[in-house]
Simulated assay, not measured.
Amino acid sequence: MIRVAQVMGYMDGGGVEQVVMNYYRHVDRATAQFDLLVCEGSGMVPRDEVEGLGGRVLMVPGYGNLPRFMRALERLFRQERWPIVHSHVNALSVFPLCAAKRAGVLVRIAHSHSTSGRGEPVRNAMKAALRPLSNVYPTYRMACSRYAGEWLFGGGVNFEVLYNAIDLARFAFDAGVRVRVRAELGLMEGQLAVLHVGRFTEQKNHRFLIEAFAKASRRRPDAILLLAGEGDSRPSIERRVSELGLADRVKFLGQRSDVERLYSAADTFVLPSLYEGLPVVSVEAQASGLPCLLSDQITREVDVTGNVRFLPIVDSDLWADVLCTVRSSGRVGVCNGDFADYDIVRAGKRLTERYEELFERVRV
């Protein structure tokens, strides 16, 4: 059996953590097991599930103190002797993979899950400084999309695209669930439910979404906005909703473990992010048949069903106009064959095989 160290950074309920856990549930765990290296201070660590699957969670200092972070990782790498280290912290993977190389780890995977966008000058400056080093320490490269891979590694560098795969059966539309969840949320028959799933961070652009929805709601008094997720910016968004007089039109649903039920209940899915690698939530929404309105800063690779519109995030009036055209009966039929690259059963098998292949290359 191959034990793989998965460098997670902070686990706070974001999409990358969901993707890694999806893969962990569906790899051949008799062949590959995961040990998650998680930064102290993380708010949502699935320790019980990880241990139930046969893995471990090991806490390390946060990367805010880089020397401590690096020392702790190098010590762990030497002590545990993992044959493979798989890093999921994007441009910051420079640091754990450097520590892995110092410790003699022969297979070092850098995985690009994101890109960059306007509105985060400090973070973007850091990413710009680290990107030129992104090819120094990995022996293998992966990315959630062609776009994310080229952003981190460059257009002339080989990397494997491993899409953010999902359990298609879990996210299939369920008419009975739709009726029950809409009743739980107090939604009337035919009332328009607009859904967003994502952490409350600047990247997800909630403030823009609220402004667009406020404009749409003047013309669609039946519209309700459902916001699933938690994060540091939630209080400021709640205040803005109150200022706009939308407290009875916007529902804050918190962190949810049943997002598949929300997709069945909703009529459209929105994601006006400043940037993304390949947002798994948009794949989930499409698997449920939802029409999607996405930021034009998101790669077109994510359009599986053809029922996706990419809109500029400089024009909230346009988003409002499009929201006003959505019908509560606008869901489309889904062909699972269209989602072949996003089928977690196939993708889990593929990742297992890749770990085996990389392990055999360096096995002495």
Rank of each mutant, 00 (worst) to 15 (best):
K127C: 02
R234T: 02
D303N: 10
A320Q: 05
L152K: 01
R300I: 00
R218P: 07
M126S: 04
R309Y: 11
C39P: 03
P132E: 12
T305C: 05
S233D: 15
D174N: 14
I210D: 00
Y147S: 10
R207A: 15
L162T: 02
G348H: 08
R123E: 14
L133K: 07
G231H: 02
W82T: 01
V362N: 00
A172I: 08
G64N: 13
M21N: 01
G9D: 11
K215G: 02
A228Y: 03
K349A: 15
A193M: 10
A183T: 13
Q6A: 05
P312Y: 07
A129S: 13
R75P: 01
V332F: 01
E276F: 00
V27R: 02
A320D: 10
D35V: 06
E357C: 12
S217D: 12
Q203S: 06
M59E: 14
T325V: 08
S42L: 09
L76H: 01
A266P: 03
S328W: 13
Y342R: 05
R346N: 11
R331C: 09
L225R: 02
V50L: 04
E230I: 11
P138Y: 09
W319A: 01
C324W: 06
V270S: 04
L209M: 14
V89Y: 05
V334S: 08
G154P: 06
E184N: 13
V197Y: 07
G229F: 01
G104W: 11
H88S: 08
V60I: 15
G254Q: 09
M142W: 14
L318H: 09
V7K: 07
K101N: 06
M1R: 00
T139R: 02
C98H: 14
V197L: 12
